[in-house]
């Protein structure tokens, strides 16, 4: 039994397969959320965080689970680049903001402390470093040599997916950091920031969509999932998923920020940072 999804070169079938690493990750995330919160809360208060936080966090964990476990995890690791791209979008553009929005400030403060970890967090979650870090990870993890070397191994596949998630948490922090100690952008700033982020994947997506030949050997030579879906078509779909799918998610956020900003302006309240609006 494999603990994590990876490219194995075996024919694809729809028989369920167990990947305990995915379950352990999900369990660890939930434990890392609830156990500290139980300690933090006074005995007089309910042991769980406020419901909206919990709902968002659990949704984020569910998205992580869907992205890394069978079938999507296995399809993305060793069969279809388009599935790999869906994984990327789920982990970076859906799960990461949900996890951040689901983290109560006291838990974030406990995790980061007030010392070195907090200083590092404040440094890397400023907009420019966050954007650079996220896109550096994006580019690195989509370099053909890296993909072809990493995806056939469980550790490599795990590392790529965790790098996506970690860099996405950093990337979203300037927009929705759970702590007031970490400055978030104003609504217009957040919209510009996310707009810039929506442009960045256009370049690698173009290589995938308009490339003469498939970029990644691991997906080009993988056993086909459907006879009608060639490696070239899969690469083109992956490029469109990266460009259009990712763009839709980011533009959805931009629209949402715009509307909530407009609503707050209409009420005459100053823009106090939309992070507050995320609070339950």
């Amino acid at each position: 039994m494999n603990w994590w999804c990876s490219a194995r070169g075996l024919p694809w079938d729809w028989t369920w397969k167990a990947f305990p690493g995915a379950w352990i990750l999900v369990g660890a995330m939930l434990a890392a959320y609830w156990v500290p919160l139980r300690r933090l809360r006074p005995r007089s208060e309910p042991p769980s965080p406020q419901r909206p936080y919990a709902v968002r966090f659990v949704l984020g964990v569910v998205v992580v689970w869907v992205a890394v476990d069978w079938p999507l995890g296995l399809l993305g690791a060793g069969y279809l680049l388009s599935a790999h791209m869906v994984q990327h979008i789920l982990l970076t553009l859906v799960a990461a903001p949900l996890l951040l929005a689901g983290t109560p400030p006291e838990l974030a403060r406990m995790l980061l402390g007030t010392g070195r970890r907090m200083r590092i967090a404040r440094a890397v979650t400023r907009p420019v470093p966050a954007l650079v870090l996220y896109n550096a990870v994006l580019i690195l993890t989509f370099v053909p040599a890296v993909v072809d070397a990493a995806m056939p191994t469980q550790l490599g596949s795990f590392a790529v997916e965790m790098a996506w998630l970690a860099s996405a948490l950093v990337m979203w922090s300037p927009v929705m950091a759970p702590l007031p100690e970490i400055r978030t952008l104003s609504a217009p700033g957040a919209m510009v920031y996310l707009f810039l982020q929506s442009l960045a994947p256009t370049i690698p997506a173009s290589f995938l969509t308009f490339g003469r030949f498939p970029l990644y050997g691991v997906y080009e030579l993988a056993p086909r999932v459907w006879n009608g879906l060639s490696a070239g078509a899969d690469h083109r779909i992956a490029g469109l998923v990266m460009k259009i799918g990712g763009g839709l998610v980011l533009w959805g956020f931009i629209t949402w920020i715009c509307f909530t900003w407009y609503a707050s302006e209409s009420r005459g309240s100053p823009d106090a940072g939309h992070a507050r609006r995320l609070e339950g």
């Binding site: 003469r212 498939p214 050997g217 080009e220 490696a231 070239g232």
Partner: peptide
Amino acid sequence: GVRQATWA
């Protein structure tokens, strides 16, 4: 293991 680019 030979890829399209190699054939091309």
